[in-house]
């Protein structure tokens, strides 16, 4: 496997508090990789170490085959969770500036900035100041600034947070396009459904510890079966079913995690006549389920 990024027992402490605890991972080139975990799990700290904004206390990070990620900065693209723009700068100048900081010549940066802005329907904004941009347009400009130097590895920290559905779609399309272009994309999120739709590989972190990682299909496949039922009626019934380890009831839809060897037909038979069933689906468990199950085994704090 051609590895874009590898972490080897990376640890970061802030005083007595361990933010990241001996995390190891290998991220293959050309995939979309998800860092998943709740807020405060250590995702941002891990990303900052990859970007050599912070340095690990122990362990080793290899970025694009080099242990010195500092020297790789020009080949990486990074969109932090906290993002901003120079409000008084013109959009074109700003994008050019970030391109130059990543080692492009002034002329190349301007040319590529113009291309990207035009491709993203922001061509007419080149000579306008950043404080005139709407939030969604601002987000696009930030992403353009991240991609202007055509990085091999792109890291997006919570790229979807605070976006409306239209812009979520815009960002998702960009990520997919980057994958088609052969780039490696790492993004962090605490929204499991997004990762489920997009990621080839995932890693789950909680309280600084890696809980599991691997290809999406494998992660979900290894976790046993589950059924989704859309229903109308008394939900307390599910708790009394045999062969069910977990009930995740949302009111109209429930996800039941089954003990290995339990026959879903048997479950269906027990429910018929007691509640009205609209849909009955068998599938691999959702990431959310996997996460809850996994975290349940790792004590908090």
């Amino acid at each position: 496997m051609d590895v874009a990024l590898s972490l080897d027992r990376v640890t970061k402490k802030f005083g007595d508090y361990t933010a990241v605890n001996a995390v190891s991972a290998a991220i293959p080139r050309g995939c979309i990789y998800g860092f998943l975990g709740p807020n405060g799990a250590g995702k941002t700290t891990t990303i900052r170490m990859i970007m050599s904004i912070l340095y690990p206390d122990a362990g080793e990070i290899q970025v694009l085959g080099s242990p010195n990620s500092e020297s790789m900065k020009n080949r990486l693209g990074y969109l932090p969770e906290e993002k901003g723009l120079y409000k008084k700068m013109k959009v074109g100048d700003l994008v050019t500036y970030f391109g130059q900081l990543k080692g492009l010549s002034g002329r190349d940066a301007r040319k590529r900035g113009r291309e990207l802005l035009e491709r993203w329907n922001l061509g007419e904004w080149i000579d306008k100041k950043c404080d005139a941009l709407s939030k969604g347009m601002g987000q696009k400009v930030q992403i353009i600034s991240t991609l202007i130097h055509d990085p091999e590895l792109v890291i997006l920290d919570e790229p979807f947070s605070g976006l409306d559905p239209v812009n979520v779609e815009v960002v998702r399309d960009v990520v997919l396009q980057m994958k088609r272009d052969g780039k490696t994309v790492i993004f962090s999120t605490h929204v499991m459904s997004q990762a489920e739709q997009m990621c080839d590989y995932i890693m789950l972190i909680n309280d600084g510890n890696k809980i599991l990682d691997g290809p999406m299909a494998e992660v979900r496949g290894s976790a046993g079966g589950s059924v989704i039922i859309e229903y109308e009626g008394d939900g307390t019934l599910f708790d009394r079913l045999p062969g069910v380890t977990r009930v995740n009831d949302a009111g109209k839809e429930v996800e039941l995690t089954l003990v290995e060897g339990t026959d879903p037909q048997d479950i269906l038979a027990r429910l018929i006549g007691k509640i009205s069933i609209r849909r009955f689906d068998m599938r691999a468990p959702s990431l959310h389920e996997i996460f809850i199950r996994a975290v349940g085994g790792v004590p908090h704090g």
């Binding site: 900052r48 904004i53 900065k73 990074y78 932090p80 901003g84 723009l85 970030f98």
Partner: peptide, 13 residues
């Protein structure tokens, strides 16, 4: 407060 520091630090020390 403009939240640009991290972007800048991803390009330089």
């Amino acid at each position: 407060s403009n939240r640009l520091i991290e972007v800048l630090l991803s390009s330089m020390s």
